[in-house]
Write a protein that binds this DNA or RNA. Structure first.
Lengths: 200, 200, 200, 200
DNA sequence: AATGAATGAGGGTTCATTCAT
DNA sequence: GATGAATGAACCCTCATTCAT
């Protein structure tokens, strides 16, 4: 990557981050190319030079986000840390995207309109993400934290659920140690609970 | 209610349902008044006669939905059914809104723009909904299904999480008995699980 | 006029006065039939029963106003009061329309769009109003308050100016030297005039 | 001013003059952006690029007109020409705006709706215009064309009247006896005046 | 490569007007 | 005769996109 390309990539990233911020604050629809251009300090026409169209830019940004998020999870769950720590970290991981909490909104809206995104999401949530979860569960089995009769499918949903919920701004804002700990207990032992000796 | 008013209310409902369907499919922004009007079989201007503006129409629909959903939950959880059945029904309740699965997304998007909606949501999720959950948990305690050291706060989040998740189209579409049952088990006993005798 | 007709005429007048008030406050364009109807306490459709269309209603009201205003002036200037009092009263006469000072606006806007109004205005300001002014000036002559070398034309313009009546673009366009000079004389020496040596 | 800016300014002026012509013919309300755009030979959207909104365009045009008109008067009355010529010219000055004779109507209509315009008008007619008139009268005094007992206030009103400038309803409302008497005196005896025995 | 200017397409909204009741 | 409901046409305005510079 020579100097020109590097500068181009830098500008693209500036546009990407400006756009993402606005998207999360107002949604992709209510964010105009002009606003993004102004916030990024470029001319609107330049965005078209870089990304082709607004739709493609949105896709580019979403894919970027999904891939990096997935990569982080994969790295975490393939690491050698003890199981309870993995769980704790997994739940809290989205800290990196603390200001991007509306990602799901972006996704949902696009799922119904863009087939390419739909394919990517499907690929992620039906193939790659389950694969990671499988690894996670295997470790849970091995370490004795997850009962053996639990299907990958159910576990995937369950985990995703937890991650989505802990992303919610209110929870993050009011987050007190006890609440998070309770949620964590619920995750392991459910409503009925099994007040076994807490290992965490 | 005379003839005029009855017809008006019928048309309003027709508009409401047409709008809701489109909103959930494409989001409120990408749904134009023209589309709604066409789908509902009325003139665009009529929508303004009924609702005043697009924004007010959105609010009207959302509030309608929230109130009726809350009412249904309240009725369910205040009923005299045994606890496990309550849980099962609560999880499956949104069947009625099987095609309205993006409600949360609508809400999220509106939370950032409309203060009136924000106030309503706050009222529901900080006052009325917790109150209902409290009743539900009391019953769980009494019947021995919920351990006594669980806070209302954590339980509220946990339950809401379950209801949101089970609303997801993929789960509903692929729903097989086993998956739902597994989720239900997870709800009660968590990942670690306590394969006590299943009472459900 | 029987009971029915009397009630009809009453309602029409109610509409007329409501409309006039709104017209003067906001202009005819920015005043909607619905507003008028509401202010007059009738249904919008009723206005159509009475007046046929908005345009016709506006015409009706304007003509009403012009005729009554002209009639008042005619009565005043044909009365037997001494000349100075006539003048004073003429200047102050628009008291009746103190809140209708935007009448000119209504007229001007209509002059360019409605030929019927144009014809009426022409009739008034080229035939009937000059006739009245002529009478007025004759009286001025006879009583020694107006010098004899003043043309009806100039006097008419002068009076109109004072009374804040329609400002006519045509006059400015067709302006001839004598007319301008007369206006200039009036400006310097007034109606009574002091035919001193002209220095211009 | 580079090429871009020069062309922009040219187009803006083209739009301004097209708009002004239509405004004077039909009023600002009855003139649509589409009409203006067509007459100016640009796309409707371009007008928004230039002026932001219809309202702002109207303000821009009005302010433009008022300022240039005021500037012309100021220059005239501060010039060294003999008094009678000044008067003659002042009366004839609006030649430049011979096709803009409805300016006053535009102003009146806007006075009731736009506070910024109201402030400008107030500034002009309560501060800047009277100042100019004062200079004019001083010259009239010095040259012996205006009797010394004439108030600035009355002279201002008188001149405005002659020049067909804004007719202010407030004046009529706040009318006090002296002011009216002065106006009446002016009407009878003109600027030069003939202090004959007052018969009124 | 970068951008200022221009615009076509479409959105929300208003309102004079009609029509069935 | 009076009215509530319904609407077509037109309006102001936005914005993704293109193009000449």
């Amino acid at each position: 990557m020579n100097g020109y390309e590097r500068r181009t990539e830098l500008k693209k990233d500036k546009i990407r981050s400006a756009a993402l911020e606005l998207f999360c604050a107002y949604g992709t629809d209510k964010t105009s190319i002009n606003e993004i251009a102004q916030k990024a300090g470029v001319a609107p026409a330049s965005i078209y030079n870089y990304f082709g169209s607004k739709e493609e830019m949105v896709k580019d940004i979403i894919i970027n986000l999904l891939e990096s998020s997935l990569k982080a999870k994969k790295e975490l769950w393939e690491s050698d840390r003890p199981f309870p720590e993995l769980m704790k970290r997994a739940i809290s991981m989205q800290d990196d995207f603390i200001e991007h909490t509306n990602l799901d909104l972006l996704l949902q809206a696009l799922l119904n309109t863009d087939p390419e995104i739909k394919k990517l999401i499907d690929d992620i949530y039906k193939r790659r993400y389950p694969y990671i979860v499988e690894k996670f569960i295997e470790k849970g089995h091995k370490d004795g934290y997850i009962r053996r009769d639990l299907s990958i499918e159910a576990a995937t949903i369950y985990l995703k659920m937890y991650q989505d919920v802990v992303q919610q701004p209110e929870i993050l804002k009011n987050r007190n140690k006890n609440l998070l700990k309770e949620l964590y207990d619920l995750m392991l032992y459910g409503l009925a609970g099994t007040p076994i000796q807490d290992k965490v």
